[in-house]
Design a protein around this nucleic acid. Structure first.
Lengths: 336, 336
DNA sequence: TTCTAGCACTCTTCTTTATCAAGTGCTAAC
DNA sequence: GTTAGCACTTGATAAAGAAGAGTGCTAGAA
């Protein structure tokens, strides 16, 4: 591909992204100061290379998946944000109260708003977390809340109904034992240490130890199952408005997938460990017309993943720019 | 309306609910042992009363909104559950660990699954809750988690980034003061008492009291704003599969509304204080083809609202039966 | 070589037209 | 009060035609 062909591909992608209409040769004459015939010839080359395709024999061209990929990898660069975009994000970036994970969540909400794509925030997996503290808060005579907090500040709470014979004092005592012995334990090992180290101890001291064990086991096991890492999807409904989703069946399927947390987690999760990954079309596993842009971050030990889900015909440069901006600002903020 | 007309309306509603096709006079001959002409005459009466309508001059009849309403109020009664439905719900009902609110949430998930409608659980509004306890958990030198727990076991947690000069000991001390002085305060009054009672005290004792006040104010104000009462919508995507939603525009709009928590909260909230309320069609505010069945519960002081959102052509009797069953079982369980 | 004008061809989209089946309302007779 | 019969309306479906956009290819110009 020579320079002119690359230029042509770039213009085709960007035009199609804007107009959502197949790009014809005539419409590009002006821009290239060439006749439509010449452009048609060049287009034929791009088509034979697999970068563009046509819906039917006499339609304009649209970028193929590899066309988009080539565009993302070679032709595009992250767009500088506009003033108003910066303004909207600044509110959050400047807010000193916000902990990293919350700040990122809120920024991703804004990004979803700005772009009309869906955004995903996958909190740092609890896997690496260490147990910080468990607490029992008595609500009334037969109800308690068990709280579990990790060293990264992830909190899980669960209510339990007690039976008559269970003594709240014993529960609290057990929580103290756990805090003394298990603080600092990786969260996914807690359940087994609970069984083999804590259970024997309380078995000697307490009447209703089975039940007490059961409660802590339950409160802690959510983490072990990794259900605790919270995934948040924003803008599910907004992305459906994109014009390529114009068929009832497609929309239903897409809505279904976007609503399925497990699936989204799978899509966004560590299929690859790259810092930046763009899954275009079929690669997205979401829908042949959909792209997922995924970025991992690791700022001062706190790591996680953010992603944007939109049509294949996505404003790649803009989204990249937005993500760059947010993660850079976060890094800056952390360094201060 | 005489008995025969009521029967006819009932059959029309139930047939239409099953088939999603306008009901013609011929198809009812067998069931009523009458000629189609007679049925047509009776249908004309029902139509003049506004209970059924036709799409166009020569189509079969479909129930109108008031037709459905009449059906719900006079012709239908809650359906007894099938064995398999009971079986699926029993798993949750029998689980002694589950606190009421969790049990109800999980039952509503099952109901959404069984019916393919969306279900909503609106946790008891935090408005009536009283402050039980606030805690500060230090995560590391400059990060803490602030926990707020109410007398009904609702827990809210929020992370805060500390600045250098803020002393964690002072934060913890403040939390103790709050616990001593404000426990039992209605949650929506906490913010103002914090300002007028706590702030003056800590102002005397602590250097960085402004910042400390700010943290607690923030942690507590979510409740005051009533964002804390958690609403959960399940089956958002599933309900879109209903055959009446076959137009891309309609589906998008519906998806949009179901994804909007504020809107759903508005729909399900106390427009009326009735224990059971059925909003049919336009009354639902969701979509002219949609019905919302809403039930409030108050079991042992814990109150909340559950709702089912489905097509206007809903299996009313079944949904009513399911809701009856769940709430009755919960009540029984509580009495034990 | 490289570019361009011209033309036949293909395919989509939109509109028009015709036909079919379902179901109604009405009348007259049972 | 019920029914048979018939004219009529409407939506849905398919077929046919016209318009428009855009292509590929050929032959000639720069």
């Amino acid at each position: 591909m020579d320079k002119r062909q690359e230029d042509l591909l770039k213009v085709i992608v960007e035009t199609y992204v804007k107009t959502v209409k197949p790009v014809g040769s005539k419409s590009l004459c002006q821009k290239f100061k060439l006749s439509s015939a010449t452009i048609r010839n060049e287009m034929a080359v791009l088509e034979s290379l697999g970068y563009i395709e046509k819906n039917h024999i006499s339609s304009g061209r649209i970028p193929s998946e590899s066309g988009y990929r080539y565009y993302v990898e070679h032709l595009m660069e992250p767009e500088k944000l506009t003033g108003s975009d910066v303004l909207k994000l600044q509110n959050i970036v400047k807010n000193q109260d916000l902990v990293l994970s919350d700040a990122i969540s809120q920024c991703m909400e804004i990004i979803s708003d700005l772009t009309s794509y869906a955004s995903v925030v996958l909190g740092s997996n609890a896997e690496g977390n260490l147990l910080k503290q468990v607490s029992i808060i008595p609500i009334d005579n037969n109800k308690i809340v068990a709280l579990v907090c990790t060293n990264k500040g992830v909190v899980e709470n669960k209510q339990f109904q007690l039976e008559e014979q269970t003594d709240i004092k014993e529960l609290i005592k057990t929580s103290e034992i756990i805090n003394k012995m298990l603080t600092g334990t990786p969260i996914n090992e807690v359940a087994s240490r609970l069984e083999f180290e804590i259970k024997p101890i309380i078995a000697k001291q307490m009447v209703d130890y089975e039940r007490i064990y059961h409660i802590f086991y339950n409160a802690l096991s959510d983490f072990a199952m990794q259900e605790a890492d919270d995934i948040r999807v924003v803008g599910r409904a907004k992305v459906l408005e994109q014009p390529e989703y114009n068929d009832a069946e497609t929309i239903k399927k897409l809505a279904y997938k976007l609503d399925d947390q497990k699936f989204i987690k799978h899509v966004v999760n560590d299929k690859d460990n790259d810092e930046l990954k763009v899954y275009i079309g079929k690669d997205s596993e979401v829908d042949p017309n959909t792209t997922v842009i995924k970025r991992k971050y690791d700022i001062n030990g706190e790591s996680g993943t953010v992603a944007v889900i939109g049509p294949k015909r996505m404003e790649y440069a803009r989204v990249m720019g937005l993500l760059d901006y947010v993660l850079n600002e976060m890094k800056k903020k952390d360094e201060k």
